[in-house]
Amino acid sequence: MLRREFLKTLLAIPFIPAISMPANSRNAGSVAMVIDVEKCIGCGKCVIACKTENHVPMELPISRTWIEGYLDGRKIVMNTNENPFLNSKAKNGFYVPKLCNHCANAPCVNVCPVYARFHTKEGIVLVDKETCIGCKYCITACPYGATFVNPEEKVTDKCTFCYHRITKGLKPACVLVCPTGARKFGELKEGSEIYELLKNSRVRVLKPEAGTLPRVFYINLDAVVDL
């Protein structure tokens, strides 16, 4: 009898941990960003504005948004306040601004062992910095390399579409400072600027084969380029 009860208790151990499951509205969401690659001139104002707005160390090569310049077939990255494109003597090239794609099917949300990543009702993927344990699985899982460890906060960090701004009706910092209007942000409802852009342009997303359903769309991006 003693043995049987003991073994029964033992088998119950795996079910002891109290698992809380916050609501995770995977596909809900109404906002998106559209980036026109032809309009991006690689000035890097978006990178500096983002770092300033979100307190990301300016001098370290970590950034919520960065610009990849494909110059004469070579890939150069701008992710600090120094612009490497200014010294380039390349004759041909284009710039691709990158950031978190706020995937509807976000690998980082799925792999996080502690629910530190979640979708807002707008579909934006946020990091709960009070819960993140810094295991870095999200960094490994992200197909876009869009997340990093913030060395000052010691938690993972990434673009939030400037959630603190957009909930007050303001534009994300990168969108606000872009001198050519290469970045557009807004609601994905019929008749909106974003909606019309997506409806009337040649649009693609990064790494569609990953099946992540990004909310960042690119216009005039050459699909042949390996990104």
Binding site: S20, P113, Y115, C132, I133, G134, C135
Partner: peptide, 15 residues
């Protein structure tokens, strides 16, 4: 990165 949160997070906030 946040070693002090590991146990708490896994027991109380597990995915």
């Amino acid at each position: 990165e946040r070693i002090e949160r590991g146990a708490y997070a896994l027991l109380g906030h597990a995915n």
